[in-house]
Computed example of a mutant assay.
Amino acid sequence: MYIKKSHLPAFSLATILSLSTLFASAAETGVTAGQVVSALEGTFGVHAGERRNHIKGSCAAGEFIGAPVARDYTRSALFSGKPLPVIARFSLAGGNPKVPDTAKSARGMALEFRLPDGKLQHMTMLNTPMFGAATPQTFFDDIVSKKPDPVTGKPDPEKIKAFRASHPDSLPQADYLDKNNPPVSWANSSYFGIHTFKFVNQANKTTLVRWRFVPQDGEKRLSDDELKSSPPNFLEQRLIDRVKQGSIRWDMILTIGAPGDPENNPTLSWPSNRKEVKIGTLTIASVTSQKGAECERINFDPLVMADGIEPTNDPILLFRSPAYAISFGKRLSGK
């Protein structure tokens, strides 16, 4: 099968070196990427040619203009000050293609930035400030706990309760989702990078950072009444209608880490008083259903990084790449 060059990974040297730890890290956790993908299939079913996670989504396209102030921290071409093409995908967590848009689960925004000379930068984010697992084992156990009971056809609440009781690293995200209703639109949500990354500037100085994209339309959540009365599928059409009124924009906000801040645990938040800098603006100018659209064919591997941005040793971040690769391979083969 022919794959466009733009859909192939373009790793920096630092990322390639980090990849050497991927499978060793997976082995240490006691769960493999293949087992996680199989668990997703066991819980949500196999939908041939589709993603195993974040299966329901919409495609979008636009541009990103990075602010030169970011070059104090990184030499990435992402922050040249020039417009860069972006392919985006908005999605709901899980492998159920019929999950209602009112589900109290995480929402995703994945971005592929098209840099000069055919290079790429991926950012794969969630609308929660933290992830729901500190290790791949916790993520695996979470998926298994949600497998539908063959009698009721629904997850067993007691199994989910037992999972949370035995996996305290899952609680911060679960608590956040419980206390915060889903957004009224993809355009009215912030999206967080979840992990800690390394920015490296021209002087080879490394700065630990986290980032998020904040909507210029403002954050708006469904009310409890709207949560009960909204139709199961409204997010895509609402985003299409919104972009007809004009482009949608998010500010990219960089948070600068300090000594002692959690570096390799995406379930732990940083103190709220950390320095923050606006380092760019994302503009979405078109939206479409994902079937047959460009984002459908992209594997939004978060370790696709260009020079100037590097991964930390976060076990979840490193584990995502081989898991995405297995799922992507199945999609390409039509499985």
Rank of each mutant, 00 (worst) to 15 (best):
164 R>Y: 09
119 K>M: 03
270 W>A: 06
202 Q>R: 14
66 G>V: 00
246 G>C: 06
156 D>H: 11
180 N>Y: 14
208 L>C: 12
26 A>T: 09
168 P>Y: 05
268 L>S: 05
32 T>V: 06
295 C>M: 04
17 L>K: 14
182 P>G: 05
249 R>K: 14
154 K>F: 15
237 Q>W: 11
107 R>D: 08
299 N>S: 09
275 K>N: 15
314 D>T: 07
331 R>E: 14
252 M>W: 03
284 I>Q: 00
308 G>S: 10
37 V>Q: 00
54 H>L: 09
253 I>C: 07
135 T>K: 07
115 L>M: 04
122 H>W: 00
102 T>I: 13
179 K>A: 15
232 P>N: 14
204 N>I: 08
300 F>H: 02
102 T>L: 06
74 T>V: 05
113 F>H: 01
80 S>I: 02
17 L>Y: 15
27 A>Q: 04
131 F>M: 06
132 G>M: 04
236 E>H: 08
4 K>D: 10
35 Q>W: 08
30 G>F: 03
259 P>N: 04
31 V>W: 00
325 A>E: 13
311 P>R: 07
60 A>G: 03
304 V>K: 01
162 A>K: 13
245 Q>G: 10
211 W>Y: 10
293 A>V: 07
319 F>T: 02
193 G>Y: 01
143 I>W: 01
243 V>M: 04
288 T>I: 15
186 W>F: 04
223 S>K: 14
175 D>R: 15
43 T>D: 11
334 G>F: 12
295 C>E: 02
85 P>D: 11
91 S>M: 12
42 G>R: 01
52 R>L: 07
57 G>A: 02
161 K>L: 11
110 A>K: 02
98 K>L: 12
58 S>V: 06
273 N>M: 14
315 P>Q: 08
33 A>R: 00
284 I>C: 02
52 R>V: 05
190 S>R: 04
101 D>W: 00
309 I>N: 00
234 F>R: 01
59 C>H: 05
30 G>R: 09
153 G>A: 15
87 I>P: 01
86 V>I: 14
266 P>H: 12
199 F>C: 05
73 Y>L: 06
126 L>W: 03
129 P>S: 10
167 H>N: 09
304 V>T: 04
34 G>A: 11
68 P>Q: 10
170 S>R: 02
268 L>T: 15
179 K>T: 11
174 A>N: 06
100 P>D: 09
143 I>S: 01
300 F>I: 03
137 Q>V: 13
137 Q>M: 13
315 P>N: 08
271 P>D: 08
270 W>F: 10
208 L>N: 08
45 G>I: 13
138 T>Y: 05
286 S>K: 10
17 L>F: 12
277 V>N: 06
247 S>H: 12
12 S>T: 05
65 I>W: 06
288 T>S: 13
86 V>N: 02
107 R>C: 08
15 T>E: 07
301 D>M: 01
157 P>K: 12
11 F>K: 07
221 R>G: 08
96 N>A: 10
143 I>G: 00
257 G>A: 09
335 K>E: 10
80 S>C: 03
